[in-house]
Design a protein around this nucleic acid. Structure first.
Lengths: 126, 126
DNA sequence: CGGAATCCCAATCGATACTG
DNA sequence: CAGTATCGATTGGGATTCCG
């Protein structure tokens, strides 16, 4: 593991800061939406095209890239049926499901409070 | 040249998605750290330079930009003492404090699980 | 069907310098 | 002290095209 300089101050950046790394991930445009859609599927699997259908606006490329990241991170599991043409299924891992919990809390906060933020912005522009 | 129809990025999809808008905010590099530092100050105020001191690596520009965004969003309050030189103090608003709650949950998740993500990445590269 | 490769624009962010 | 202005390097991500 990374020997954290556990001293008193991060050097230039703190590459060991877990919150920064997590936010870098869920901050990318489609990541949290993939997690949400897969979480709504419960334990079920979702195919690539179906995932894309449930995420209006996502391009094939970005969905692919996002799923790869999530798979490498161990948050999503990928299963391929070796048919022709192939069928690829995705589902959350246990880790992915555990992330959905604080993510859902964030969503709830957003739904309850983004209107207030919009109002603050409108007032600030006046 | 007819420029590509850009400028539609906010309107193209569901503009009412609050989660996307929230993540666009807390996903920027320094936002969540400012919220955390101000939250740790409780109800107390923190001056600009002190804030910068507690955030290793942040530049004056980015701290300034981040604080402006948070202030426009109504998450942070800015108070200026009209002295020479000026003293500017920042603190969280009630809305800002309420955001800190789900943000703290996300931090806790990150601290507990980013190591697993790092391990998954290491395994995927092997 | 599910990608991978390529191109390109726009936004983010850091460094530096200047100001009231 | 607390910003503001400008520049340039880097990155995110959309459109398109090609592949097994």
């Amino acid at each position: 593991m990374t020997p954290s300089p556990k001293g008193t101050r991060g050097d230039l950046f703190d590459p060991a800061c877990p919150t920064r790394k997590l936010l870098d991930r869920i901050g990318t445009k489609w990541t949290s939406m993939v997690v949400k859609v897969l979480a709504e599927a419960g334990a079920g699997e979702v195919r690539f095209a179906e995932l894309q259908r449930r995420m209006p606006g996502v391009s094939q490329k970005m969905l692919s890239v996002t799923l790869q990241s999530l798979t490498r991170d161990g948050l999503v599991e990928r299963r391929v049926e070796p048919t022709v043409p192939p069928r690829v299924h995705y589902c959350l891992t246990g880790l992915g499901h555990s992330l959905e919990v604080p993510l859902a809390a964030l969503r709830t906060w957003a739904e309850e409070n983004m209107a207030a933020i919009d109002r603050a912005n409108a007032a600030a522009l006046g």
